[in-house]
Every structure is written in C-alpha cells, then in structure tokens.
C-alpha cells in the first residue's frame, strides 16, 4: 500500500540520536507521517524498506520497544535481526566499538540501539556506516518514545500546543522525561516535572521547567499526567525511603487524579509498577488511561522514523 496524504518524513541528519537538535518541522513531519501510518494499522508497506536490513542491538532488556521496532520494520518490508545482550559476544568481554565494527562488516542499513550508558548510540554512530536510531540510552534520550507519546497526545487532543502536561516520577533517571521535555516543549506544551527532590535535578528548574515535589499541586489542571516508574536499575537505592512512602506521596490514584483537568488522560511509557507509581484502578481505567494507545501508536511512530532514516540510505 502507498500512503497518499503525507510524504516520508525528511530529516537533515543521518541518525536519530535524540530529540535534541531536531528542528520543529522535522518533528511535525515525523508525527504527520506516523499519524497516517496509524490510520492504517493493518496495512503493510513493503516497498519502503524492501531489501534493507535492520539490526536491533539491545544492551538492556526490553519487550515493548524491541518488539515495536521489529513489527515496524517488518511492516515496512525490512529484514530484522535481533541481538540481545544475553546471547551476544558482549558477555564475553567485547567492547561496544568492537561489536559495532563486527556488525558493520555485515553491512546493516539501520542499527536500532538501546544501551544503559548515556551517549552509547552517539559513540556507535562514529564507528559504523549504518544509520543509528537511539532506542533509549541510559538517562539521556528515548526519542521514539517521545514521538509516540506526542503522537498519542496529538491524536487525542488534536494538538499539543497549549496543553498542560505533568511528567511525574523518577525524573533523574528518565530518558523519557528528557526526550519528552524537548519534544513536547518544542511543540508548545506547558511542561511540569513532579518528583521527590532526591530524583529531580535542580538544573531542570534552571532550564525553565516548572518543578514540583508535591504530586497534587504538580498535576493541578493538567491535561496529561504522565507517570514514570522508579528506575531501580539506575538508582543508588537511597533516593526514596520505601515504595510504601513513595506510593503515599507520589503514586497516582483516582483521588489525586481529581486535581488534574476534568478531561485529563493518564500516560505511562511502561513497564508499570502497580502500587508504586500508579494505582491499578487508574492504570486499567479505559476512559482515563492512554497506556494501551501508547503501545499501539509506538509501531506507527517507529515506522515513520525507520522510513525517514532510510531516505538517506
């Protein structure tokens, strides 16, 4: 099938390493294209990436992002190779650059990388010929997550500009928060971060984000309440006293959600920790929760990214 309303998004750079530095018109182009892909969730577009090879190189565990890229690539007609850290030579002591060089010799077209070190995709991009898409690097960026979040919001509200969006939880360790700040902020949303002070770098305040340490005050009149999980794997362990206290003060439940705008929606990039940052009643509320929509639209957002990157190949 061919899409008729939009053209493949056009990017000035070869790689998608982050939202930082991406011009607004490119963001809009990706979102427009993704939205049209989303209008045809059952269709395939095999001509887009026919004959192309995508390598999913995941140094961190992932279910939804990896599968989402895989589905996206397959619907565009590419061949996909999944390399997860457990079965790779990384376990045998190979450095990131050596792995990249080895992979490079096999001439992949697009490398989708997730790594626990901030900046790892940027490092790879200097040593490999393939186009790199950052699928999450440490605490730095997760650009395709931000795009799918923006897509979800845009399709629900019609536009992003002027919306009040609260991103709540472990901000320090969240690449989702950083990418969303850049993307949603560039698109005109009014962003707030809500987090315990131990998980909220004061530099964000200096960057002009409205920072709150009180969940109810932070989500007041917000159109979107985006919850993040405590990223225990990136935490030192003493940022919060206990999950019990964290849920008491920072967990979202129906009662606290009343403080948000009457038609507010709840989002979560997943995986959720029920009873830690979000109450099940909210997570499973089909009228309030956009969490399943986010997963669904993730495929369309990644299709737009893969297609855009392929334009340079």
């Amino acid at each position: 099938m061919l899409l008729s309303n939009t053209k493949p998004a056009s990017l000035s750079k070869r790689h998608i390493l982050g939202i930082e530095g991406m011009p607004v018109h490119e963001m809009m182009g990706l979102l427009a294209r993704a939205s049209e892909f989303a209008d045809h969730p059952k269709e395939t577009f095999h001509d887009c990436l026919r004959g192309r090879t995508i390598v999913n190189l995941f140094y961190e565990n992932s279910t939804r992002t990896r599968v989402s890229f895989e589905v996206a690539g397959k619907r565009l007609g590419a061949s996909i190779l999944n390399i997860s850290v457990a079965g790779s030579s990384v376990k045998k002591g190979e450095t990131l650059i050596d792995t990249a060089t080895t992979l490079n010799a096999m001439h992949p077209d697009i490398l989708v990388v997730r790594h626990n070190a901030s900046g790892a995709p940027a490092l790879l991009s200097q040593h490999i010929d393939a186009a790199i898409i950052n699928a999450g690097d440490g605490r730095h960026e997760h650009p395709t997550q931000a795009l799918l979040d923006a897509l979800t919001i845009q399709r629900k509200f019609g536009q992003i500009a002027g919306l009040k969006i609260a991103i709540c939880g472990d901000i320090t360790n969240s690449r989702v928060a950083r990418s969303n700040l850049l993307l949603l902020g560039s698109l005109g949303a009014e962003l707030r971060f809500v987090s315990p002070s131990t998980l909220l770098p004061s530099a964000f305040d200096d960057m002009g984000v409205d920072c709150y340490t009180d969940l109810e005050a932070g989500i007041e009149n917000c159109d979107i309440v985006m919850m993040l999980r405590l990223q225990q794997e990136r935490m030192e362990g003493r940022e919060v006293p206990s999950q019990h206290e964290y849920f008491h003060f920072f967990g979202l439940n129906a009662e606290k959600l009343h403080r948000a705008a009457p038609n507010a929606f709840v989002m979560h990039p997943g995986p959720m920790n029920r009873g830690v940052e979000i109450d099940s009643q909210i997570a499973d509320d089909k009228l309030k929760s956009l969490i399943q929509t986010q997963v669904e639209l993730g495929v369309a957002a990644r299709m737009a990214c893969l297609e855009a990157v392929a334009q340079h190949l």
């Binding site: 003493r238 940022e239 919060v240 006293p241 206990s242 019990h244 206290e245 008491h248 003060f249």
Partner: peptide
C-alpha cells in the same frame, strides 16, 4: 535512617 543504622533512609515523609 531506619533503626538508626546510618545506611537506609527512613520514611521521613510519613
């Protein structure tokens, strides 16, 4: 700290 152990943050907020 919990049990005054000097290691684990107690539930200060509660």
């Amino acid at each position: 700290t919990k049990a005054l152990d000097g290691e684990r943050l107690a539930e200060l907020g509660m």
